[in-house]
């Protein structure tokens, strides 16, 4: 049986015990949207695994009073672990279908490769190749060329937490994250980096899609960005306000961010904002040897301390 059939049967079997199951579905052959499965007939809309782009863990906090089934990829499972660890959701009200993931396709990249991708009627992935069917042609692309950026550096294709694994786990070796993008950025001069953020933030439309797509941004209506008291941000649409918001978001995720990349994917302006989060993650890894969302037992490093810090030197002036 194919993965999608296995998944459909697994959900069908568990559906009577659950209020709903979160998965991906829809008619668009290049993108799937979140699918809230409440009845068996909803299962017909289930999309194919390579379209499971969004991180459904973003819905868990607001649905925490319900009994939820959730389909997770490796990266999504880290968000779930982080939410559980912080006590934001409870394990008993959650049933997790773990899906080993070969990577998801980025519709924007397909659009760049194929001029008539907008009229695509079907997409299939077989042995490292993507077949895109349009009314006139069948295009064949390399899977690596159209994978989402985060999939190219994916280290956890298999879910780290699940009640049921769909299909076989994908064998993976040790894949280090070399932070090449960050190294390249940091090789720029300080002024160039400053100018980069000025130019990036100038394009920001301050829609807060990055915040709303973030599975760990659970303050929702109580976000300090919207608060008048304390008044962290004004309503001015200038660079300093927008830049400060990004720093605020990043700092609130320091030691929590699992780099699922949803902020950057949700950005309508395509701003490279994951870079800030990755920088903090790298520093946290170096300082505290900690990575978010890998296990349930450890405490996020900024929620704890040690009396003698191994990697923090005594500061003198």
């Amino acid at each position: 049986m194919s993965t999608i059939d296995l998944l459909r049967e697994a959900i069908r079997a568990k559906l009577p015990d659950l209020d709903m199951v979160l998965a991906w579905g829809g008619d668009d052959p290049l993108r799937a949207s979140p699918l809230f499965i409440r009845t068996e007939s909803d299962l017909e809309n289930l999309a194919a695994p390579h379209l499971y782009v969004s991180n459904l863990a973003v819905n868990l906090y607001s649905l925490r009073s319900k009994k939820i089934g959730l389909v997770v990829k490796g990266c999504d499972s880290r968000s779930v672990i982080q939410l559980l660890k912080e006590g934001l959701i409870a394990r008993p009200s959650l049933y997790i279908f773990g899906l080993p993931c070969e990577g998801v396709v980025d519709a924007a990249k397909i659009n760049r490769e194929i001029p008539d991708a907008g009229r695509a009627t079907g997409l299939a992935v077989r042995s490292g190749r993507v077949m895109v069917q349009t009314p006139e042609n069948e295009h064949i692309l390399d899977l690596d060329a159209v994978l989402a950026d985060r999939c190219l550096r994916c280290r956890y294709p298999n879910p780290l937490i699940y009640d049921q694994l769909i299909g076989e786990a994908i064998p993976v070796g040790e894949i280090p994250d070399l932070y090449q993008d960050l190294d390249e950025f940091e090789a720029l001069s300080l002024d160039a980096r400053h100018d980069f953020w000025m130019e990036t933030m100038r394009r920001c439309v301050r829609c807060y899609a990055c915040r709303n797509a973030c599975p760990l941004c659970v303050c929702k209506a109580h976000c300090v960005a919207d608060s008048r008291e304390p008044h962290w941000l004004t309503l001015e649409t200038n660079v300093s306000q927008k830049w400060f918001f990004q720093v605020l978001h990043s700092m609130h995720l320091a030691g929590r961010c699992t780099e699922c990349g949803e902020c950057e994917r949700a950005c309508p302006m395509g701003l490279p904002i994951l870079l800030m989060r990755r920088k903090l993650n790298r520093e946290i890894r170096e300082l505290f040897g900690y990575e978010a969302g890998l296990d349930l037992m450890t405490t996020p490093p900024l929620s704890t301390f040690s009396i003698e810090e191994e990697n923090i030197a005594e500061r003198e002036l």
């Binding site: 100018d195 980069f196 030691g255």
Partner: peptide, 27 residues
């Protein structure tokens, strides 16, 4: 002790923003 961790992380974050980390110090 909590402050030390947060402020150290911040100090390392500033250069990526294009702000001289020397402008900030904690003692």
């Amino acid at each position: 002790l909590y402050a030390r961790r947060r402020l150290e992380v911040l100090k390392r974050f500033l250069p990526t923003l294009g702000i001289e980390p020397e402008r900030f110090e904690y003692i």
